[in-house]
Design a protein around this nucleic acid. Structure first.
Lengths: 342, 342
DNA sequence: GTCTTATTTGCACATAAGTTCGGTATATGA
DNA sequence: TCATATACCGAACTTATGTGCAAATAAGAC
C-alpha cells in the first residue's frame, strides 16, 4: 500500500526552473508521501500518467526527494561494535554498501545527512563546527531542507585556495542555504604560503572572531582526507605535488582538518602542517568530534585519525568498515601470536 | 538434505527476532538508497524476490523509511491533503503564499484561474454557476482569454445592490467578456428589502428562468465571505451595519451565496438570510461546489462553510491553509484529551 | 502420536512504473 | 514562405512491483 520508489531513472538534466519545478515537487509529494499511484495523480492534476512519471523522475533527479532508512543490518551493527570498542568511540555508524564503486558517496551522504538531520532535529547543539571535503559536501547536498534559524555553523579551516579562489568543497555556504542558519566561514586560504603569511592572517580581527567561535562549538563534523593519488586536495590544487610528497616522506597517511597525521595519529613534522589555517586538533580534543568518511582509499587514513583519539564518532560505509575491522584483527593476531604463522 | 534443512530452520528460529528487522532494513537500504531492483537485491542476498518485496514492505510499514520532498509545493500539498481528508473534499488546492499581505489576492486569483481554465479546457462542464465577491472577480481577471462559445455561465444570486446600482463584484459580466460564453445574470438585488419584495421578484418570469438554469448547473464556483470589519458586503453597501450585527448576534461566522452560516455550517436564523435572492445551499448540496477563498480574515468563515458539507472543493492560499490545519489539530487535541479522560 | 490452527512461502497473476518511438506543435532562420 | 531543428507528448510496450491463493511448514492441542 505505501509505495515508494527508488531513483534509477535515466532522465537528462537541464530541467526548466520555476513552475515546472514546483509541479514536479507536487507530483513527487503526492507519490512518495501521499501514496497515490501515478495514475491517480495524473487524474488529480489533469495530466497524463506519463507526464507524471516524468515529473517525478525530474524531481528525484533534481534531488528534491530524500530517503532515509533507519535501523541497521546485523552485519553493519557488528562492524560498528567492533570499531567503536576498539577506539572507544561514543558511536559508530556503518551504512550498508550498495556497490557503487570505490567512493560510496551516496551511502555516506545518506548516512551522514541522516545523522546531521537528527542532530538538528534534536536541537541540542546550537553551534556546530564544520570541516571540508567532497564527502561532507555530498552530505549537505543530501540534507533535507529545514529551517534552523537558531543553529549556527562555523567553518573550522580556511575556505580558499591559496590563490583566493573559492574552495569547491567548502561546505558552509550550502549549509547556510539549506538550513537558513547563521554560518561563519574563514576568509583565509586553506594553507598559507608561509609562516609569516599565516601570522598576518591570524592577526586579522575577523578571523580571530571566527576562531574563537570555532573553539566554542559544541559539535564538530569533519571529513578525513587520504594522501594517495586520489587525494582531493591535490585534485583541487589546494596543495602541490611537491608538498604532498613532503608530508608523505614525513610519514603521513591521512589528513584531518588540514593536519597530516602519521599512522599513530600524530601530526607529522612538515612545513605544510604548520601552515594550515584552521583550528588545531589539540584544541578540540575531548569534545564531540564526528568524522564522516569512506571509500577504498580511506581505511588507512581513517584508522590514523582514530588513533589520534580526537575523533569520537565515525560514520562510514560497510566495505570500508570491513577493511578496518580486518586490519584490527590482523593487528591483534600479529600482537597476540607474535607472528607465529606466516 | 533433511539434515541441512533442519539446521537451517533451527538457526532461523534462533535469530528471527533481531535478524528479521535488520534484514528488512538492509533490503530497504539497497532498494531506496542503492537503487537496485527487488530482483537484484534478491539475487544479492540469496532470497526470493517476493521475500524482498515483503521485507521492504515490512520496513516501510515499521516506519524505518522516511521520505522528504523538498520544495514549496510539497508543503502546500501536505496542507491540501489534511484539509481534503478532514472534510472529505473531492479536492483541495493550496497555492504558495508569497507574502503579499492580509489578502493574498494574486495567489488566489492565479490558482483559481488555473483551475477554472482547466475546467474550461477539459470541456466537460457546459453550464457553470458563479457566485460573487472580490476574490472571484480577481480570478476572472486572471483567466486567460480563450473563447468558449459552447459554455454557459449563470449567476447564482442577485447582481444589484438594493438601490439597483450594479454590484461592483458581480463576476458574470467580465466572464462573458473574457470567454465569449453566454452568461445569465439575475436582474435582482442581492438582498430584497422584505420578504414581500422577494416574493414579487421570484415571481418574475425572467428570474424564474435564471433560477432553473442555476439549479441545472454542473459546477458551482463560489466565494466565501467573512463578517468581520473587512466584510466586503459591508464595504460595498450591500448590507447595513445593523444587519451585520443582527446576523453576528445570531451566531454567524461566514457567508456563502448570500447565506450566513454559524460555525457548524448551518444557516443562522435571521431576516437577512431569508431575504437573500439567490439559489439556496440545500439546492446544490451533493453537486460539485468549489469555493475560492483565502486571507487573514477568512479561516473561520471557510471552516464554517466546509462544515456545511455543501462545498466539495476548496482553493485557498498557503497561509490560510496553515491556519486551518492548525485549527484542525487543536480540535483533534481537544478531542483526544477528552477521550483520554475516560 | 494425530489432528487442528497459525504462519510462511513462492507461484502466477494483477497492477503500477518506466521506456521507446513516432507523430505533433513550436521556434528558428534563410 | 518553407525547411529544419527542437522540444514535447502520449500510445504501446517492457520491466518492476504488489497480491491472492494454495501448498508447505511450524506450533499447539489433546
Amino acid at each position: 500500500m505505501p509505495e515508494l520508489k527508488r531513483q534509477k531513472t535515466r532522465r537528462e538534466a537541464l530541467e526548466v526552473q520555476g513552475n515546472d519545478r514546483s509541479l514536479a515537487a507536487r507530483a513527487a509529494w503526492l507519490s512518495f508521501i501521499g501514496g497515490y499511484t501515478q495514475e491517480e495523480i495524473a487524474r488529480k492534476l489533469g495530466l497524463s500518467r506519463v507526464k507524471i512519471n516524468r515529473l517525478i523522475a525530474e524531481a528525484t533527479e533534481a534531488g528534491l526527494v530524500r530517503v532515509f532508512v533507519e535501523g541497521n543490518a546485523a552485519e553493519c551493527v557488528a562492524l560498528e561494535d567492533r570499531i567503536a570498542a576498539h577506539w572507544k568511540l561514543d558511536f559508530c555508524a556503518v551504512s550498508p554498501t550498495v556497490g557503487e564503486g570505490p567512493l560510496p558517496l551516496r551511502t555516506l551522504a545518506a548516512a551522514g545527512a541522516h545523522y546531521l538531520h537528527n542532530v538538528l532535529e534534536r536541537g541540542e547543539k546550537k553551534l556546530i563546527g564544520i570541516g571540508h571535503g567532497r564527502t561532507l559536501d555530498e552530505v549537505v547536498k543530501y540534507l533535507p531542507r529545514a529551517k534552523r534559524p537558531d543553529v549556527r555553523f562555523v567553518s573550522l579551516l580556511g575556505s580558499l585556495t591559496r590563490h583566493a579562489a573559492a574552495n569547491p568543497f567548502d561546505v558552509i555556504h550550502r549549509l547556510a542555504e539549506v538550513t537558513g542558519a547563521e554560518c561563519y566561514f574563514m576568509p583565509a586560504p586553506f594553507f598559507a604560503d608561509s609562516m609569516e603569511d599565516k601570522k598576518v592572517l591570524l592577526g586579522q580581527k575577523g578571523l580571530k572572531d571566527v576562531f574563537s567561535l570555532a573553539r566554542a562549538a559544541e559539535l564538530y563534523v569533519v571529513g578525513i582526507g587520504e594522501i594517495g593519488a586520489h587525494a582531493h586536495m591535490l585534485a583541487t590544487g589546494m596543495i602541490t605535488d611537491k608538498e604532498l610528497r613532503e608530508v608523505k616522506l614525513a610519514g603521513a597517511v591521512g589528513e584531518v582538518l588540514g593536519r597530516f597525521l602519521d599512522k599513530n595519529g600524530r601530526p607529522v613534522h612538515a612545513g605544510l602542517n604548520e601552515r594550515a589555517v584552521g583550528i588545531k586538533l589539540e584544541e578540540i580534543e575531548g569534545k564531540p568530534v564526528v568524522a564522516i568518511a569512506g571509500g577504498e582509499d580511506k581505511p588507512q587514513a581513517i584508522m590514523a585519525s582514530l588513533e589520534s583519539r580526537v575523533i569520537k564518532g565515525l560514520i562510514t560505509d560497510e566495505a570500508t568498515a570491513k577493511t578496518i575491522v580486518e586490519a584490527i584483527d590482523a593487528g591483534a593476531k600479529a600482537g597476540g601470536l607474535q607472528r607465529a604463522k606466516r
